[in-house]
């Protein structure tokens, strides 16, 4: 079946089997391997992407469901030069250990900050409920998201 999806700002047409999961379409057909497959059972959140601006687990959505819609993956988050403020904050706060959960964590953080620019710590933790870090490095991830919120609000305050 032919689908047409806007992925990271670029209109993309492709032929997929209806049973292809969005995560496999992104990783194998589009080679966007920043989207990780962790549990493959919609628990761990490593495959999180934005679909029409909403955070979803791409292991539990068919590629055909994304037809005529818009997907943002970790690869599309940073500007042409440099890093996204959430990525910068993760780097500065050492918010990753093995790094496997990081793309999903960053996408979840980005989704949260788009809706709530200044979240409280409990709000950050609640927003990460669907993302598991098996290094158990949550503390620095939460710190990084607070730092990213601060960065973004400072940038927006600038003329």
């Amino acid at each position: 079946m032919q689908i047409s999806v806007r992925v990271n700002g670029k209109q993309t047409s492709a032929e997929v089997e209806p049973r292809t999961l969005l995560v496999h379409f992104l990783r194998e057909q589009l080679r966007l391997t920043g989207v990780h497959i962790g549990c493959d059972t919609s628990q761990c959140g490593a495959c999180s992407v934005l679909l029409d601006g909403k955070l979803v687990k791409s292991c539990t959505i068919l590629a055909v469901q994304a037809d005529e819609r818009e997907v943002l993956t970790i690869e599309g988050l940073a500007p042409r030069e440099g890093l996204h403020p959430v990525q910068e904050a993760f780097q500065e706060c050492h918010a990753l250990q093995c790094g496997f959960c990081t793309p999903g964590m960053v996408m979840a953080a980005h989704a949260l900050l788009s809706r709530r620019p200044n979240p409280s710590e409990p709000e950050i933790r609640e927003a990460l409920r669907g993302n598991r870090c098996r290094c158990t490095g949550y503390q620095n991830i939460v710190t990084a998201i607070s730092a990213a919120a601060e960065k973004q609000s400072k940038r927006e305050a600038q003329p």
Binding site: G45, V56, A108, G130
Partner: peptide
């Protein structure tokens, strides 16, 4: 229910 991602879908 579930988590953010589950509630969004």
């Amino acid at each position: 229910i579930g988590d953010v991602q589950v509630r969004n879908s």
